[in-house]
């Protein structure tokens, strides 16, 4: 696992204050968006809890003692939401968020491709098999997996099944 390439903004103290000037804020949030996605992709983070945000180096640069407030983290995540790169885990509380460094549609495509590559089409396999396979799907959060599979269901390429040993899915050609 490589190191994150921190952008210059990460050491720029005002990066951690949401900017009042609209244009500057747009640039700032754009930078945050790519940083969050890069960071989560590298560290395989699927869920961000806003209340725990400061425990992630992502939101807390101890070198310059600046951190993003929970409120600001929410602002950043809302930007990710608008581009399809985040979603609330639970609609009632706004503190837990999925981060989609692949959008759900992309995940669906990746899952289906896995099924094709591993000759799983027209076969039932468990979520466990999927998330413990080698490759992109390894460690994938089950919540996100279900969302991706639902996309495949819509495309009529899969059906989610309830099995004795947990959940599973059957892929169609």
């Amino acid at each position: 696992m490589g190191e994150v390439q921190w952008p210059w903004q990460y050491s720029f103290p005002p990066f951690f204050t949401i900017q009042p000037n609209l244009e500057t804020r747009k640039k700032q949030l754009d930078a945050w968006r790519s940083l969050v996605l890069d960071y989560c992709r590298l560290h395989k983070i699927f869920i961000i809890d806003v209340r725990e945000g400061e425990h992630l180096p992502l939101f807390n640069n101890t070198a310059i003692s600046r951190k993003l407030s929970p409120q600001a983290i929410n602002t950043v995540l809302e930007v990710l939401l608008s581009t399809g790169n985040a979603g609330m885990v639970d609609k009632s509380s706004r503190s837990r968020w999925y981060v989609y460094w692949h959008t759900v549609d992309e995940w669906a495509t990746i899952v289906y491709k896995w099924a094709q590559d591993n000759a799983m089409v027209n076969t039932v396999c468990t979520f466990y098999e999927l998330t413990n396979s080698s490759g992109d799907l390894n460690g994938l959060d089950e919540g996100i997996l279900v969302k991706a599979l639902k996309v495949l269901e819509k495309r009529q390429l899969a059906e989610i099944l309830t099995l004795d040993s947990g959940s599973g899915v059957k892929f169609f050609s």
Binding site: S11, P13, P14, T17, Q19, N21, T24, Q28
Partner: peptide, 28 residues
Amino acid sequence: MVTEGLCWIDKDHKKDVSYWFPSMFTEC
């Protein structure tokens, strides 16, 4: 200058608000 986008503000609750110029920030 904030309005013009020439500088960014940094609200650190412990200190005064500071105004930062990316054009003079070494990393930038």
